[in-house]
Nucleic acid binder design. Structure first.
Lengths: 159, 159
DNA sequence: TTCCTTGCAAACGATTTGCATTGGA
DNA sequence: TCCAATGCAAATCGTTTGCAAGGAA
């Protein structure tokens, strides 16, 4: 069985996640402020990474853009968020994998939505095996990998 | 056996590649100008994708920045180049896969160099299988995939 | 009280575009 | 010849930062 949309199905654990995040912030001498809670919550409830503009709109004026960017920067510096860049170069933000679990991304070329996918453990093990094989053969020591799958989501396929 | 650095080992075919590119440009009503030849050559000789600033420097004043960007845009519009975005959001450019063959990227977290890797066919087939499996299970129809392997290259590992 | 955080406005850097000029088929 | 391509300067856009004001421990 394949799990996807991990975070949305884990909201019952959001208080535990919140506690972990508070601790991590304290570790780097930062506070768990209102804006930071709002951003973490929005990302926790999202099925995939979000860009700053989306967050800004979702938080409807609660957090001005510059503060939002600073919030994202602090959370990333604390290792709570991860940043990546979509095909247009705009930064996408999501909770780090130590909070969500390791996962990959399905990118719909139709509507642009990005969705998390967690392969079943056996599949992920195979992928890791190939990644190590490829890296080793090229003289690299692999530390991480990112698999983006492009395609059309169910809704866009039926259009 | 693993092949990597595909393009550098294929320079003997660069005249054929050049012809294909000229044809493709003609198809979209564009000319194969000096600047476009220079950019294509630089990318053909590179072991991996390049950012605009690198190209600008490599072409040492031969092509002003704005023209370089327009050149990249035209070549991408014609399907000759592909664009992706590194961890800092800066666009990286490379020849499209119909010219280079399908490949993935090894990203060195030490020196930032990005190198092409072409897995052996059996490995690539397995990867495609997993990609389809994962996409299908989530209701997507996979059309493409991108695998970025992060790690440390031989030089950085020994440092 | 002491820092951390906020919000506004201004600065930045990568990329794009208007416009007059140049150049290639 | 004629339309595409060029190059400069100015404009965009996402993102970052200086600085003074506000807030939590």
């Amino acid at each position: 069985m394949l799990l996807y949309g991990v975070m949305t199905s884990c909201t019952r654990r959001s208080d535990e996640t919140t506690r972990l995040i508070g601790t991590r912030l304290a570790d780097v001498g930062a506070r768990f402020t209102r804006a930071r809670r709002l951003v973490v919550r929005a990302l926790t409830e999202s099925p995939g990474p979000m860009i700053a503009a989306d967050l800004h709109e979702t938080l409807r004026g609660e957090v001005p853009l510059s503060s939002l960017y600073r919030t994202l920067s602090v959370l990333e510096g604390a290792g709570i968020l991860a940043r990546e860049h979509g095909s247009n170069g705009v930064a996408r933000h999501e909770l780090a994998e130590w909070l969500t679990g390791h996962h990959h991304h399905l990118v719909c070329t139709g509507c642009g939505v990005v969705q998390d996918v967690t392969p079943e453990p056996a599949v992920e093990r195979e992928i890791v095996g190939f990644v190590d094989h490829i890296a080793t053969a090229a003289g690299y020591r692999a530390t991480d990998h990112r698999l983006d799958i492009e395609g059309t989501c169910a809704a866009c396929t039926s259009k």
